[in-house]
Simulated scan of single mutants.
Amino acid sequence: MPHRSAAQPQGAAAAGELGKCYEQAIKERALSVLANIDAELCAQVSAGLDLPAPAVKARLTDPAPSPALSQLGQTWPLDGRIIGIVADETADLEGVRVIRQAVLDAKIVPLLIAPVDGQLDPDGTPITVQRSFATARSVEFDAIVLGGTAGPGSDATGARDGKAGDSAATTQQVVADPRAVLLVNEAFRHGKAIGAWSGGDRAITAAGVPADAPGVLIGSTGDAVLDGVTELLGAHRVWKRFTPQTRTRPSMPVTRPQGHRPGLTHQSSRRDNHRADNPKSDVAASGAAPFYGGSP
Score class of each variant (00 low, 15 high):
residue 6 A to V: 07
residue 11 G to R: 02
residue 20 K to C: 07
residue 26 I to S: 12
residue 27 K to V: 06
residue 34 L to S: 09
residue 36 N to K: 02
residue 39 A to I: 05
residue 46 S to F: 10
residue 48 G to I: 08
residue 58 A to Q: 12
residue 59 R to I: 10
residue 63 P to E: 14
residue 64 A to I: 15
residue 65 P to W: 08
residue 71 Q to D: 08
residue 72 L to C: 09
residue 74 Q to S: 02
residue 81 R to L: 03
residue 89 E to M: 01
residue 101 Q to I: 11
residue 108 I to T: 04
residue 109 V to F: 02
residue 116 V to I: 11
residue 117 D to P: 05
residue 118 G to T: 04
residue 126 P to T: 09
residue 130 Q to H: 14
residue 137 R to F: 08
residue 144 I to D: 00
residue 151 G to W: 07
residue 153 G to Q: 04
residue 163 K to I: 07
residue 169 A to T: 01
residue 169 A to S: 13
residue 177 D to V: 06
residue 186 E to A: 04
residue 188 F to S: 00
residue 192 K to V: 01
residue 192 K to G: 02
residue 193 A to V: 00
residue 197 W to N: 00
residue 198 S to N: 13
residue 202 R to V: 03
residue 203 A to S: 01
residue 219 G to I: 08
residue 221 T to L: 10
residue 228 G to A: 09
residue 229 V to T: 10
residue 230 T to R: 13
residue 230 T to V: 15
residue 231 E to Q: 11
residue 233 L to D: 02
residue 235 A to V: 05
residue 240 K to E: 14
residue 258 Q to T: 15
residue 261 R to D: 13
residue 266 H to D: 09
residue 266 H to V: 09
residue 268 S to K: 08
residue 268 S to L: 02
residue 272 D to C: 09
residue 273 N to T: 11
residue 278 N to W: 05
residue 285 A to P: 01
residue 293 G to S: 10
